[in-house]
Design a protein around this nucleic acid. Structure first.
Length: 271
DNA sequence: CAACGGACCTGCCTGC
DNA sequence: TGCAGGCAGGTCCGTT
């Protein structure tokens, strides 16, 4: 997926076309996403006026006069604004149609994404209540990471990717932040000093901020709200670079598997 | 409570 | 050319 920078880039791209507009129809071509689309979704969205498009972690939140819709893009999802007449391609599963004949179209080949109705207080929805702080908020810092990691034996990379610890850091940016912070991805989270966590927290912020500035990372099929790919890929230092020289020491980047996920790191620079 | 594996899906690439 | 197998940006849930 779309990790946080891609979701944020998407949010910024689609918000101007949605806010202030009214939903007049919903077309669901494939209801079987991660969770089946609620049969009542059309009733809930019909004639709703979109007030704001927000983001929490990797969730997009469409706030309307009727309540909020959570949109998660899973591993392969994207949304864009198109004319409602534009012919639907394969995997274009849902159109949220506006009064001006444009629509928000969800495209998701792997169907790990979801559309979930969250009512009038989305922050109390179970998918959002347990999320950790936003990584770009002041509440996320080295002291926070240090405190919540005490006693945890899990590898720091998995810890960073745990949305209950911090919301929105996925595989790419966990790898990148650990490289810049020179921390080995397998190190136990509870065995990292406060000063190293101070550094790591700022590395996470730097990597995410820069990726947002570049419009996100496109590996295969990510496109933003206008259908354009992101540009951050060229700046990735370790992700997807197994065997290539480390930018710091020039020794080869290694790849291993942690759980089901690929981990990239420099065994010489990261400890 | 923490850690881990499985589940949900399709498409692309590699190697036989 | 065809097919099997591995792999991919996420994260919830059930079991240890």
């Amino acid at each position: 997926m779309p990790e946080l920078p891609e979701v944020e880039t998407t949010r910024q791209g689609i918000a101007p076309y949605l806010v202030g507009h009214r939903i007049v129809d919903l077309q669901v071509r494939q209801p079987r996403l991660r969770w089946p689309i609620d049969k009542d979704l059309y009733t809930r969205l019909r004639s709703a006026l979109i007030i704001a498009v927000e983001r929490r972690g990797k969730y997009l939140i469409l706030n309307t006069t009727q309540g909020s819709l959570l949109i998660h893009l899973g591993m392969s999802g994207s949304v864009r604004i198109v004319s409602k007449q534009a012919s639907a391609e394969k995997h274009d599963h849902v159109d949220i149609i506006l009064e001006n004949k444009t629509c928000l179209r969800l495209h998701d080949p792997r169907r790990f994404g979801s559309l979930v109705w969250a009512g009038s207080k989305p922050e109390t929805h179970p998918l959002l209540t347990h999320l950790g702080p936003e990584p770009l908020d002041a509440a996320f810092d080295g002291s926070y990471l240090y405190e919540v990691s005490r006693g945890r034996k899990v590898a720091i990379k998995n810890f960073l990717m745990n949305s209950h610890v911090v919301a929105g850091v996925g595989n790419i940016y966990a790898n990148e932040a650990l490289f810049i912070a020179r921390i080995h991805p397998d190190r136990a989270a509870g065995n990292i000093s406060q000063s190293r966590y101070m550094n790591l927290a700022s590395c996470v912020k730097i990597v995410l901020t820069e990726a947002i500035r570049q419009g996100g990372t496109t590996l295969r099929d990510y496109v933003n709200g206008s259908g354009h790919p992101g540009q951050f890929r060229v700046q990735l230092q370790v992700y997807g670079r197994a065997g290539q020289p480390c930018a710091v020491c020039h020794r080869p980047i290694k790849r291993k598997r942690t759980g089901q996920r690929a981990t990239y790191y420099c065994p010489n620079c990261q400890h």
